[in-house]
Amino acid sequence: MAAISCTLLVDDDETTNFLNQALLRRMAISDTVLVAGNGQEALDLMHTHCELPDSPTCPALILLDMKMPLMNGFEFLKAYAQRPKCQNPLVVIIMLTTSLHLHDVAQMKGLPIAGYLTKPLTRDKLKQILQDHFGQPAEDS
């Protein structure tokens, strides 16, 4: 059994999603990986997969891109926070960004995120997330 039952990748870049899925699979981190191309798709997936909060396909980890068309990471977080509490599972949300511009970092303060990382996602960054937020290291496969 993996460290996390389900991970949700939210990024508009298909190549990034493909590479991140491959990394999660190689490291055997999640039993299920869901992918959304923007914040609205992510909300729709959350609605579908988190109807029952203890559902094994309800994400325990969300890796959220900051800048996307239609609904970006900030807009997703605002909409997510407005959902009824019973529909929001306990989830670790990590914001992903290509830069740590001071304006972007300032915008992240006070958001319901567990932290932020610069892209690309790496084995070491994922191991750190597992240690910091799930109390266990990943199994290397």
Rank of each mutant, 00 (worst) to 15 (best):
A2G: 11
A3T: 12
A3Q: 12
A3Y: 02
A3N: 11
A3F: 06
I4S: 06
S5L: 00
C6F: 01
L8S: 02
L8N: 06
V10Y: 04
D11R: 10
D12R: 04
D13C: 12
E14F: 15
E14R: 15
T15M: 15
T16S: 15
N17M: 13
N17H: 07
N20P: 08
Q21S: 14
A22D: 08
A22Y: 01
L24P: 03
L24F: 11
R25L: 09
M27G: 00
M27N: 07
M27D: 01
M27T: 11
I29V: 14
I29A: 15
S30G: 05
D31W: 01
D31N: 14
T32W: 00
V33R: 00
A36I: 03
A42L: 06
A42D: 02
L43F: 01
L43M: 05
L43H: 01
L43N: 02
D44Q: 11
D44I: 02
M46D: 07
M46W: 14
M46P: 04
C50Q: 07
E51A: 15
L52V: 13
D54L: 09
D54S: 12
S55K: 05
P56R: 08
P56E: 08
T57M: 10
A60D: 12
I62Y: 04
L64V: 00
L64T: 00
M66H: 13
M66T: 07
K67A: 08
M68C: 05
M68H: 00
P69G: 05
L70W: 10
L70S: 11
M71Y: 00
F74L: 15
F76P: 05
F76Q: 02
L77M: 12
L77S: 03
A79P: 02
Y80K: 00
A81W: 04
A81I: 00
R83W: 07
Q87G: 04
Q87F: 13
L90R: 13
L90Q: 15
V91N: 05
V91R: 02
V92T: 15
V92K: 12
T97V: 03
L100D: 15
H101C: 13
H103Y: 13
G110K: 04
L111Y: 04
I113R: 07
G115Y: 10
G115M: 10
T118I: 09
T118G: 12
K119W: 11
P120W: 08
L121I: 14
T122G: 09
T122V: 09
R123H: 14
K125C: 09
K125V: 10
L126N: 07
K127C: 14
Q128V: 11
I129F: 10
L130K: 09
G135Y: 05
Q136H: 10
Q136C: 12
Q136D: 06
A138M: 09
D140A: 10
